[in-house]
Design a protein around this nucleic acid. Structure first.
Lengths: 189, 189
DNA sequence: TGTTGTCGGTACGCCACCGTATGGCCCGGG
DNA sequence: CCCGGGCCATACGGTGGCGTACCGACAACA
């Protein structure tokens, strides 16, 4: 019961899937077309060229991620530490593998494309600011809060990079301990 | 004064440069040939095909990294904490950007190629084992030591992923604080 | 001086991808 | 009925990469 005519969103969605699976290099017009069961004639109706697609991806990802982090760190009467634990569990481990794949692909992309680098930089700034504020809300100084946020995000993305081969319970336990180190506090017995 | 005839090492070296700069996708026969100022006729003399090159890269990277981590964590009368701080400074920040670029490219590669994934997994196992032993040498239990090693490496690689835009002193200070959190101890005034 | 082996150049066919030009289909408004 | 626009198919030229077949330069060596 899918819509019988595609639009920009259809192509963007397919593009993000390709990005997650194979990096920017794999978001190719004819490949996406095949996956959408149309020809590229459709693509070049909705987009001027491939560059317009990838720039739409950058912009869409940016606003989506910034909106998400603002939601996730807004404390409506919650304790900062609890919010931090929430964010950690949202990105951590094997939950939301697609989201993590896109994150990593985005960052690999940023390593060689200045436009992507600028987008990732903006998102990172916002994220560091948000969780830095949470740490500051726990009584840390500005410098310490920023350092904690830096450690926090480095761990999250680095974890997605580390090979998770065999012994899953071992990693499970490790992540548990890491969580307690990253966001101090007595909770979470 | 370069050798006037190329060999496998020449191609491998160029291949790792291309890998660092643009990921696996950029290690292409004709591109490397152009950079080495020869034609691909040379390449196909030293290698059967492109796959033989990339497999040589995987193997070479593996043995090199395993050898390196064993060196860097062997304590010849050194304190475990000092060795940990050494490793951290070796990979951290902006020192050795080429090495970090290769690390990240390798891991991005591993996300879509099972052979690369296996290689990275082997290296990671060895690294986690080595620094885990160091943490254990500081009196931690096996579980805690492994968790610390996990946090340690996640931070190192995650840090390479985080956008480092503007305010370098801010990040410098943060990494300093992170170092003290990652490897506890009173040293390093 | 002829022979053999090492190393690289030249030229070709193949394929995947990009972007364009153009034509066809279908559907609503007049 | 027809017609105009939204949406897609078809077909084409161009480019860049892979791998192969074959040729040439050059050194060692007998």
């Amino acid at each position: 019961m899918e819509a019988k005519t595609l639009n920009r969103e259809s192509w963007l969605s397919a593009a993000f899937s390709a990005l997650a699976e194979g990096g920017v290099e794999q978001v190719r017009v004819e490949v996406l077309a095949k996956r959408l069961k149309v020809t590229k004639g459709s693509f070049y109706w909705h987009f001027r060229d491939r560059m317009e697609l990838v720039e739409a991806m950058l912009e869409g990802w940016k606003v989506g991620r910034i909106e998400a982090i603002k939601m996730q760190t807004r404390l409506d009467g919650w304790a900062p530490a609890d919010r931090l634990r929430d964010v950690l569990s949202l990105y951590g481990g094997t939950s939301n593998p697609r989201g993590m794949a896109i994150e990593l692909a985005m960052r690999d992309w940023a390593r060689r494309d200045p436009r992507a680098a600028e987008i990732v930089a903006e998102v990172d700034r916002e994220r560091l600011r948000c969780v830095s504020d949470l740490f500051a809300g726990m009584g840390l100084t500005a410098d310490e809060a920023f350092a904690r946020a830096y450690l926090f995000y480095s761990f999250i993305f680095g974890e997605g990079l580390l090979a998770r081969s065999a012994a899953p319970d071992r990693f499970e336990k490790a992540r548990d301990i890491c969580g307690r180190v990253l966001v101090p506090g007595d909770a979470e017995g």
